[in-house]
Amino acid sequence: MKVSLIIPTLNAEKFLPNLIPNLMKQSFSLVEIIIIDSSSDDRTVDAVKEMGCRTIVIERKNFDHGGTRNLAVRESTGDVVIFMTQDALPFDSFFVENLVAPLKDKSIAASFGRQIPRPEASPPEKFARLFNYPVKAVIKSKEDLPSLGIKTYFFSNVCSAVKRSQFEEVGGFPEHTIMNEDMLLAAKFILKGYKVAYTPAAVVWHSHNYSSLQHFNRYFDIGVFFSMNRYFFNGINNEGEGIRFLKGQLNYLLKKGQYCWIPNVIAVTVAKYAGYRLGLMEKSIPLYFKKIFSMNRVFWNDVNSTEDI
């Protein structure tokens, strides 16, 4: 199994001294590490070249979650491709080995690993990682849609691996999607009859301490994503998952005695819901305001709208 690893970067210099050496010391050797950089302002490109990585540089305005990764895959040589983000750090030297292990099964097209919170993560963020990335392994297929619902398609490019042949068979990542290109890829695999594995033995440190405004921006984009991709999710209700998350988060904080975080959770929940509902209504929102509400503002640069003001 030849494995290539792809990381899109933007001003990633501060992450590289820990990330790249860690990847080069893995128990399973990579045939290449490809950095596809969106014209960073810092020394990202020079630093990764010095560390022996292959580099591709694109204009920042041309970055696209799916299209940029598809470009890097076309330049890769592995029959398995791992995707990571610049701010994820493997927990141990067996990360790559454990991530690709499920792909030995011919029915499995892709796998993704577990994310654990960084030590500085806030209590609500720690719960979010525990909620979304449990310790139990799962293999998901089309048969799980009635029981798992939207979770059937849950998948993350923070640390994932795909078989190149199946990736090409389904046409790779969808291009020009505001976010969740990884979820759409998983949906394409599953609807094609393949399986997707969650393998918690492959672990990375990864978490964010977003503000309420950042959560609003992110969930606006999530709403836009579901508005623009309704055909993939017809008949699948995803709002129930949000209610289950909120109940679990509040119980977690109460059990931990972290009462001071409860007002923050309530404020963040309101921001998320408001952003999400506005995102679902994006077709009736002027482009000017979409750019203000969005976390991925570059996405809107190529969107034509007669409502622009």
Rank of each mutant, 00 (worst) to 15 (best):
residue 6 I to H: 05
residue 7 I to C: 14
residue 11 N to I: 04
residue 14 K to H: 12
residue 15 F to A: 12
residue 15 F to H: 15
residue 17 P to E: 06
residue 19 L to S: 07
residue 22 N to H: 15
residue 23 L to P: 11
residue 31 V to M: 09
residue 35 I to F: 13
residue 35 I to R: 09
residue 40 S to H: 05
residue 42 D to F: 00
residue 45 V to M: 07
residue 46 D to R: 14
residue 46 D to N: 13
residue 47 A to K: 15
residue 47 A to M: 15
residue 54 R to C: 13
residue 57 V to N: 12
residue 60 R to H: 12
residue 61 K to Y: 06
residue 61 K to M: 08
residue 62 N to L: 12
residue 65 H to L: 06
residue 71 L to R: 09
residue 74 R to E: 12
residue 82 I to D: 12
residue 90 P to V: 03
residue 91 F to E: 12
residue 91 F to Q: 09
residue 93 S to K: 15
residue 94 F to L: 09
residue 94 F to M: 07
residue 95 F to T: 13
residue 100 V to Y: 08
residue 103 L to E: 09
residue 116 I to Q: 04
residue 119 P to A: 04
residue 121 A to K: 05
residue 122 S to Y: 04
residue 125 E to D: 12
residue 126 K to I: 09
residue 129 R to E: 09
residue 130 L to V: 08
residue 134 P to T: 01
residue 138 V to R: 02
residue 141 S to W: 00
residue 141 S to L: 01
residue 143 E to D: 14
residue 145 L to W: 00
residue 145 L to C: 03
residue 145 L to A: 03
residue 148 L to A: 02
residue 152 T to I: 04
residue 152 T to M: 06
residue 155 F to R: 06
residue 155 F to C: 09
residue 159 C to G: 15
residue 161 A to L: 04
residue 164 R to E: 01
residue 166 Q to L: 06
residue 166 Q to K: 10
residue 167 F to S: 07
residue 167 F to A: 06
residue 173 F to H: 12
residue 176 H to L: 11
residue 178 I to F: 01
residue 183 M to R: 11
residue 187 A to Q: 06
residue 188 K to H: 01
residue 193 G to K: 02
residue 197 A to Q: 04
residue 198 Y to D: 06
residue 199 T to I: 04
residue 202 A to L: 06
residue 204 V to R: 10
residue 206 H to S: 10
residue 207 S to I: 10
residue 212 S to H: 07
residue 213 L to T: 11
residue 215 H to C: 09
residue 217 N to V: 01
residue 220 F to E: 11
residue 229 N to G: 02
residue 231 Y to V: 10
residue 231 Y to T: 14
residue 235 G to L: 08
residue 237 N to V: 10
residue 237 N to M: 03
residue 239 E to F: 00
residue 241 E to Y: 10
residue 242 G to D: 07
residue 248 G to K: 00
residue 249 Q to M: 14
residue 250 L to N: 01
residue 256 K to T: 13
residue 257 G to Y: 01
residue 261 W to S: 02
residue 263 P to R: 05
residue 264 N to P: 04
residue 266 I to E: 06
residue 268 V to A: 14
residue 269 T to Q: 07
residue 273 Y to V: 14
residue 273 Y to E: 12
residue 275 G to Q: 03
residue 275 G to V: 01
residue 277 R to P: 08
residue 288 Y to P: 02
residue 289 F to E: 14
residue 292 I to R: 14
residue 297 R to I: 14
residue 302 D to R: 15
residue 304 N to T: 07
residue 304 N to G: 13
residue 304 N to H: 11
residue 306 T to M: 08
residue 307 E to T: 12
residue 309 I to G: 13
